[in-house]
Amino acid sequence: MHRADQHPSRRMLLNVTGTVVAAGLTAGCTPDSAQRGWPAPAATAAPSPVAPTGWHQAGITLPQPAQGNLLVVVADLGADVAPGQLLAELGRAITALTAGTDPRLLGLEPGDLTVTVGVGPRLVRTADASLPGAADLPRFSLERIAPRAHGGDLLIQICASDAALLSVVAAALLDQAGDRIDERWRQSARRGGNVPLGNGLTAPRNSLGFIDGIVGPHTKAEQERDLWLPGPSAVAGGTLAVLRRMELDLPRFAALTLAEQEAVFGRRRGSGVPLSGGAVVSGPQLGAKTPDGRYLVPANAHVRRANPTVVGVGHMLRRSYNTDDPVPGLLFISFQNDLRTFTATLTHMETTDALLEFTITTASATFLILPGFDRRRPLGSQLFS
């Protein structure tokens, strides 16, 4: 099988990356530059490594806060490919890459590199159609999705503070997979600067200028309730992911007044405080009204339409990453232990959520994020024995 035509080959990616690394070394570290008296760049503390093994995969709740750079690759498996063997190989490659012992890193330090792997509904159904993750994501309105940008068998999520690692690690893992997979689409993205929310929590700003991901399962008890799959044993310790790539109409949103922008979200743009008042991390008081009877949080505000209590679902762990290829947008990723948490929320939003008026979805997929792994329990072995 052949990878999508719009993507460069693995050999090309490796050659380009090696050239870029070499160019950076010769351009920035020559004795000539030192002789000119230019100040050396300030030393920065190296990010702490993140163990790839454990009960849960890394890259979901660890590290905290999440790294600033992300690359997702969505691919299909060949019809005759054994998923278990491929996943076990990817797990071993991930262990070597995060340890810095894989020569395909080209000398780059892994730092806080994480790689998170999920499998799509078709593969889950081949194991057991009754398992969480076996259901496909339905179609929704406000979508313009090409066939190859909907669904998929394999998700590889790569996160790191060092953006240079993303394409290098992707090339290494695709090289490991070889012709057993066929790439559908990929997207690189980045998170905005982290804003303190209180109680040790932070969240980034999105491309629309608002703090994103305030509400979610933050405590261990909340994560056990809403994030991690408790069972069956084949999926215990995993979770369900939804990916949605969206284009944003930034000029039209920017043309709104600040008050109109805040009414779209239901929060203050600068602080993230709900329009009903209170702390940033507190939920909005949806019944609060002005003296003349108007809701402080408008009826079509995003925080009202997407509110878990209003929808009647659990919390999602939401991650939004800013994109600019081919146009400004967001890559939205949510993690939850029940797909209905996402589908019911978006169904509720579709009717009147003011934020959706500025978005169009161009890629969509759902994956079972596999349970964690170690030497005795290879990646995917619980599902594909």
Rank of each mutant, 00 (worst) to 15 (best):
T352Q: 04
G380K: 05
V311T: 05
G312E: 10
A170G: 01
A82P: 06
G91C: 10
L240T: 02
G192Y: 04
D76R: 01
R190Y: 14
E247Y: 08
L250D: 04
E350F: 01
E357Q: 15
W228F: 11
W228L: 12
G200Q: 10
G59C: 12
V16N: 03
S381E: 11
N15A: 11
S207N: 12
S334H: 09
A241S: 15
S161Y: 05
Q187P: 00
D324I: 14
V311P: 02
D374F: 01
T290C: 13
N300M: 08
T101C: 07
L62A: 13
T345V: 04
P371T: 02
F140R: 04
A66Y: 00
G37Y: 13
L286E: 03
F358V: 12
A203P: 05
G68P: 02
T239D: 07
A129Y: 00
V235H: 07
R10C: 12
G200P: 04
Q67A: 15
A288R: 06
G293R: 07
L106V: 09
L165H: 04
L113R: 09
G178S: 06
V73S: 02
D338L: 08
D226Y: 08
R304P: 01
N199K: 14
N322D: 13
G231L: 15
A299C: 01
A22N: 14
M349C: 11
T44C: 06
A27R: 11
Q176M: 11
A149W: 00
S233F: 10
A40N: 00
A203M: 09
V273T: 13
A79M: 09
G329L: 00
A363Q: 04
P230G: 11
T114P: 06
P230H: 12
A82Y: 01
F332Y: 13
D162T: 08
A241I: 05
R190A: 10
D76F: 01
R318K: 13
V73Y: 00
G314T: 03
A365N: 08
A363F: 01
P147M: 15
L166W: 01
P110A: 15
A344Y: 03
G68L: 11
L13T: 13
R376A: 13
R36I: 14
P274R: 02
R186S: 10
Q6P: 00
P147D: 14
F265C: 07
P110Q: 14
M12F: 10
A58W: 05
A160L: 15
E183N: 00
A149S: 14
R190M: 11
V235P: 06
